[in-house]
């Protein structure tokens, strides 16, 4: 005991210079190696560590594990729900796109049909109009021909009358019709 006390005194002096170790050191030297306290420390360690183990095993850890599991379940559930909603959304988009494509096709068809119909109608109307025009043209031409022949038939008559008037005023005597028409016909040839 005396040697351990001496040892602790030297340690004490190293650190503090002039300090004298307390009486407590006299009982066992360097405290961690004092075997007198071992039994008590082991006993209380066993009691406290056993208690801690029991609390951890029965209360704390199941509780934390429960919280973590709840969270994991919730996240997994939310992800599944999100996935389901996404699939629904995708299906809706696909349906919408299909409907859109159908509508576009139909619109295309309707536009095409209408265009064709209008074209045919326009064509028909134009044909009709052209027919009417050409008929009128033919009629007009016929009338022109008629008028022309008529006019031409009047020419000799006018010429005869004019010639009669001319001759009468020149010589004071009207020529006979036969002479006149012979002369007019000759001039007109």
């Amino acid at each position: 005991m005396a040697t351990t006390q001496a040892a602790s005194e030297t340690t004490g002096e190293h650190a503090a210079g002039t300090e004298v170790p307390s009486d407590a050191h006299a009982t066992g030297g360097f405290p961690p190696f004092n075997s007198e306290t071992f039994a008590s420390q082991i006993l209380w360690l066993a009691i406290t560590f056993g208690l801690l183990y029991w609390i951890m095993n029965k209360v704390a850890l199941p509780r934390i594990a429960g919280i973590l599991e709840d969270r994991r379940d919730r996240i997994a559930g939310d992800l599944a729900e999100a996935n389901r909603l996404k699939q629904e959304g995708d299906a809706a988009v696909a349906a919408y796109e299909q409907a859109l494509a159908e509508a576009r096709n139909r619109a295309h068809g309707i536009a095409h049909d209408t265009r064709e119909k209008l074209k045919a109608e326009t064509e028909a109307r134009r044909n009709e109009a052209e027919e009417g025009l050409s008929k009128k043209l033919a009629e007009a031409e016929a009338r022109i021909g008629e008028i022309k022949t008529e006019a031409l038939s009047h020419v000799s008559e006018i010429a005869t009358d004019t010639a009669t008037a001319l001759v009468e005023s020149l010589i004071g005597k009207a020529p006979t019709k036969t002479e006149l028409s012979k002369a007019v016909d000759g001039a007109m040839k």
Partner: peptide, 9 residues
């Protein structure tokens, strides 16, 4: 200031 005192039981 004894550095060992803190380990005293």
């Amino acid at each position: 200031q004894d550095p060992i005192h803190q380990f005293q039981i």
